[in-house]
Design a protein around this nucleic acid. Structure first.
Lengths: 341, 341
DNA sequence: TTGTACGCGTTATCAT
DNA sequence: ATGATAACGCGTACAA
């Protein structure tokens, strides 16, 4: 026996439920539910009745209840170290757009750049029972790996590459990028290298790619300016100051992002140094300004939108039980030579 | 009588519940729930027992169930026209950070720049039963206003100003910004104005502020280049081309964003025009690059983080029943004079 | 301080 | 094609 008159028990005005719609339409709640979620199982005239009743009652479905009952939340959690980062934000936008097309909502969480914080956040996320998760990067604490794996949730790691992802992956090889940058600059004749670099894990891998390749050619970078996150123009300027004031002028400066490179170029101009004649400067990311900058900035281009679209689709496909072609997608990268080198 | 052996009825491996933890700890589910949500109501030794049992079972709370029962989801929905927009993204990051501090998650939705899409999205959002909503702007379709108001949910509108918000508001006056820009440039002696402008509603209001003030001084802009969203450097360049090629060279070009201004400056340099001697260029937003650009860009500064922090706090305060000082917060703006004018 | 009973709004399952 | 019933996992209200 239902206690229909205990409705207001917990205070607040109750919003209309399936049952209200059903009563209005002269149907059972279950039929209304079907009319909404599987209209093909319901007679067309019945669907019409339901639509009218919904309009009359102002019914809005309750996905908390629906998710609880069906064990599917239509929610995807996305974890990025930072939102206001010129690199990630395009990927996030792409994920959001693609998820919307496929009927999912995005829970966006910011982890910062530390493993323990990410672990905490993932626990909190799981309590929302998302249907899938997007994680930035492939380095996670053992604790978090355990939690994620035992949740048996579809996961896509992005912005990095490994043959052994937690589940699925869309990204590219930071090490190979480092190799390519080093090879490119070495071939151009540069020998005295300076670095302006942030300390996030993926940037560090790119640096390793660079130094490894240089080492093969018996070259060791002269100096490195380490800058904190997030990277800004000012930090690029300061970074170059640091490198120049240390006495040994490099002939090429490699920056961990285009933003730092732009800052370095500005500082170089201020000091009367011509780029690239006196000092070459290389970035990473191919941000919007890079090809317009004077001089235009040599860089590495990543298809940031592709990452988001593929990640969203992989998740949605897996959730919906579709066959997956590949569990790991390497979207590659492209070194773009411009005026600054 | 509970049907404990019907657990696996719907397939999938069931994750541990409060009841599992309770059994492990030798307590009732209700006590476990309290130990988690109101530990001060529970004896310290009992809390310890619960913690151990949670560790043993690997329990992760189910906020779908919790939200359904308590009618509070600890979820805030944020609707922005675009994520990958240098202006909004900082506000979104600030909202996310501040919400996290106060124990909420952020559901982030992208509306684009059309009213009807926003209305659809808000309906979808409400089905998640968020505890509050952040909306960008103050112009909404009547239909959406009805839906929002009848939901009786705390709402904060941001990035604009009106004495009559739906509920609460954090923003600033676009019209006053337009007035101030026009007054400033007029005072500097400029008389022949060109505009490079996007068509979003708030930018249009700023433009009206400009033209109104100019009209008072018997000045009418020479020409306007309208560019699509999102604004990019290229569009700024093209915009200036458009203005210059129309024959009547302006002595000052006002852009609806710093990005467009930067593009216009680049194009001016390419054409051998000195900024500001031959042509002055003004932006909006005070983005990171604006003060470093050569020449540095005169602009209007908005405290984008403040908007996010205040919006998050207002919502959390209202949800938690705290007293609100003001329902409308005008965070103001600052015109920053630099080299480009 | 802890426990019992029940409802939150929906969907899965089975029956008709 | 539609309906009846029983979960889904938790918190509210009240009892002990």
């Amino acid at each position: 026996m239902k206690a229909k008159n205990a409705q207001q028990k917990y205070g607040k005005t109750r919003s209309p439920t399936l049952e209200d719609v059903a009563r209005e339409a002269g149907l059972s709640p279950m039929t209304v539910s079907r009319a909404l979620n599987n209209p093909h199982l319901v007679r067309a005239t019945t669907v019409e009745k339901v639509k009218k009743a919904i309009a009359v009652t102002g019914y809005i479905p309750n996905l908390l209840a629906g998710g609880l009952a069906s064990r599917r939340s239509k929610l995807i959690a996305v974890v990025v170290p930072q939102i206001n980062n010129n690199m990630f934000v395009d990927t996030v936008q792409a994920i959001s757009d693609q998820l919307a097309k496929r009927g999912y909502h995005m829970l966006l969480c910011v982890s910062g750049y530390t493993e323990d914080k990410e672990s905490e956040i993932v626990s909190a996320i799981l309590s929302r029972r998302p249907d899938g998760i997007v994680l930035t990067g492939i380095q996670h604490s053992p604790q978090m790996k355990r939690i994620i794996l035992s949740s048996e949730l579809p996961v896509v790691e992005i912005w990095d590459l490994t043959p052994t992802p937690l589940d699925m992956l869309v990204g590219f090889s930071h090490e190979k990028i480092g190799n390519k940058i080093a090879k490119y600059l070495y071939k151009k004749g540069y020998r005295k290298f300076g670095l302006i670099w942030t300390e996030d894990k993926r940037a560090v891998v790119r640096k390793k790619g660079i130094t490894d390749t240089l080492a093969k050619n018996k070259v060791k970078p002269l100096a490195e300016a380490t800058v904190p996150l997030p990277a800004t123009l000012s930090l690029g300027r300061e970074g170059l100051c640091h490198l120049l004031d240390s006495g040994n002028k490099p002939d090429a400066v490699i920056c961990s992002s285009d933003t730092l490179a732009q800052g370095a170029i500005i500082e170089a101009s201020h000091r009367g140094l011509r780029v690239p004649q006196d000092i070459a400067i290389m970035g990473f990311g191919d941000l919007d300004f890079s090809r317009h900058n004077v001089p235009s900035i040599s860089t590495v281009k990543i298809d940031r939108w592709r990452i988001g679209i593929d990640a969203a689709n992989m998740l949605a496909d897996k959730i919906e039980g579709a066959e997956l072609n590949d569990v790991v997608i390497d979207i590659g990268f492209e070194l773009i030579e411009r005026e600054s080198t």
